[in-house]
Design a protein around this nucleic acid. Structure first.
Lengths: 187, 187, 187, 187
DNA sequence: TATGAATGAGAATTCATTCAT
DNA sequence: CATGAATGAATTCTCATTCAT
């Protein structure tokens, strides 16, 4: 019985993952403007199957983008606990650059218009974690006392959106903006 | 007869200006996503008249946004000749912030996906002027030796796009990002 | 083995009843436009189970609505045998109003487009019973000689459908139309 | 010039009329559930042309159905001024029957769920006119003192909706219900 | 046998662009 | 030359019904 359930779920979950993955790919490549049809096509399923997994395009975006934001939030939290917070901070921005270079998800989640309350919440959590990191750095005199997490994300993700739209593929260039944002925020 | 032709041309020119101005207003207020209909309505002409002046929406955007970019380019050139280039540089970024706060045109032109070759060209000119300014500042040791005009515009306009999408109206906040970009680029 | 079969049959019957009851509730509350999904959810079974019991949504509607029509038919038959047929007639219409006020089933069955031959048949039986009642009343000179059962149901249920769509909850208002239909048919 | 304007408008107006007429036909035949596609197809135009004339399906329905309601309202007002108000009342209901027999518009407007505020308003005007007529009749002791215009329309249009759904074509049958409603409301 | 996942057809609506007048 | 009417292609979302497990 548990086998049967597992089998069903395995199939369903696998398909849901196919959809999620397809959405990840499509949104990463073409931006959130991409149609649900394209996601469905990429997943090799019908349009309605996508809607079965995610009631609304917004939900789908929230799932895909939210996961990426969560990932970044976790990184930020790790950085707070780091022995060398400044290095961790620089590394965090760098990982953002790597993420942005390979997919539009992170900066779509952190900088674009908020597509859902849940995503808004995740964004707030992300900023909160980043703010904690900044506070540690301020205490150590490593970043400007007046800088906010919001400003960091707006600067960083704003730049990333442009890079992506311009089709920049070179990771070094993406990283460069991580550097610049670090420079903008340092003491 | 020549009078008629002249009249017609005069009319045409006047129409083109009306259209341009309307597009300026509409795109500034609602962003480049605004429909051609709205531009035509604002101009008080038919939609086809818009297409007579500008073969495609892209062309219209190029004209409107390009003019704004040109304006900024001119400011940059003036700054190069300034007695206090750093102050002029800071002021330039600030004027970008003021522009962005009141209309979407500048950052749409400098940071978004290049909508046409002509706009791309104008953008290049703008960067060139800004680069000249940066070079002057570098010679005086006021900005990082490795900074490029492109980086400045990407940082600045990237942030501006986000501010606009989030509906931020407070000019002080816009100016803040001008400050931050200056900070990112200083020595 | 026969036990197993019996068990299965018992299960199947129980399931069919669960489905029927769920459909009754859902269609009564939300009207026949309610989706099969909602019925399945209410029944706590899968959608396919609904389709196992009733090959088509139409069949399900026929079953649910038909039962309600049968109920009304039985009332009508009782009324025929009543000592005071006119009072029984008025009471019958009134019970229709009560039914209609609390669920969409009766008037959906008697007045809407015929969804199946079986329902059509049940409707005919209902009319026949009502016609018998009317005939008794005609013999006693209490209703118009030219009135038909069909006319009574069309008037009554037509009004009920509108009341339901307008969201009228007040039972008194529903009863009012029972009165009016009685008035339309009296001598 | 006025000729040019007239020509353009003539074409546009003709097309708008084609759309309106097509909507009238399609909604009359198939009910308001019919798709905008069908209206467009009937009119021989593209779907978007329909939307050019009427921003929303609701607007289209309001236009088509509202006109029919207005027509009936005018009839009711005429009846108020009639020398023989009772005859005029009976005739009014009868004309409703004729209208309903040939198209679903009148009873869709007067009895179904209100599709727009404007239609709601038209409906109110219609009831008001009918109420005036009923008041005259009450003063002459020709209808029940307790009857309301709303009740008359609910009874009449409720019956009509059913007749239409059952596909009844025979005008005599439709008229019969006008009679019955008159009977229900008489003193 | 029961499940719920998958689907295809369809519905409303939008918008850049073309065309008849 | 100017107009605005017309269009087709997209896009989001729904639902009755079928199918693999």
């Amino acid at each position: 019985m548990s086998t049967v359930i597992r089998t069903r779920r395995a199939d369903a979950v696998r398909n849901a993952q196919k959809v999620l993955e397809a959405a990840r790919e499509v949104f990463a490549e073409r931006g959130l403007e991409a149609g649900v049809d394209q996601v469905a096509a990429r997943a090799g399923v019908g349009k309605a199957t996508v809607y079965r997994c995610y009631a609304t395009k917004e939900d789908l975006i929230t799932a895909v983008v939210g996961a990426r934001v969560d990932w970044f939030t976790a990184l930020a939290r790790d950085a707070v606990a780091s022995a060398d917070p400044w290095a961790a901070y620089v590394s965090l921005l760098d990982q953002g650059a790597e993420s942005g270079c390979s997919s539009a998800l992170l900066h779509a989640g952190l900088a674009a218009a908020p597509s859902s309350a849940e995503l808004e919440h995740k964004r707030a959590l992300c900023r909160s974690a980043l703010q904690d990191l900044l506070d540690v750095l301020k205490a150590r005199g490593r970043v400007r006392a007046d800088i906010t997490a919001r400003e960091v994300t707006v600067l960083l993700c704003g730049a990333f959106r442009t890079l992506r739209e311009e089709g920049v593929q070179d990771l070094a260039e993406w990283r460069r903006y991580a550097d610049l944002v670090a420079a903008a925020t340092r003491v």
